[in-house]
Amino acid sequence: MSFAGPDIINIILICFLITIAIAINFMKDLLYVVIVFGVYGLIMVLIWLRMNAPDLAITEAAAGVATTTLMIALIMRTTRKVK
């Protein structure tokens, strides 16, 4: 069983994902957590692009990454203001 080039890149990207997921688990500062979560989403988008699902990648980039990260960032701003 030999791996073609693209597969190795995918494996590396998935290893990145696993690392980031563990990092999110153990980070303390919420701002960093949110930023790293954005990176996680972008890597996921890359993997989907490489797996021939461009429609999904576009939707995830627009909705999943951008909207979710923005919403969470806004929430963090308002919650800090209340303090």
Binding site: L30, F37, M44
Partner: peptide, 23 residues
């Protein structure tokens, strides 16, 4: 907030499973 991010991570991992199934 971290609980919520955990839910998001789980969901996107399942999406990855589906996409890999279709590839």
């Amino acid at each position: 907030l971290k609980k919520l991010l955990g839910i998001n991570i789980m969901e996107s991992s399942i999406f990855l499973f589906y996409v890999a199934t279709g590839n």
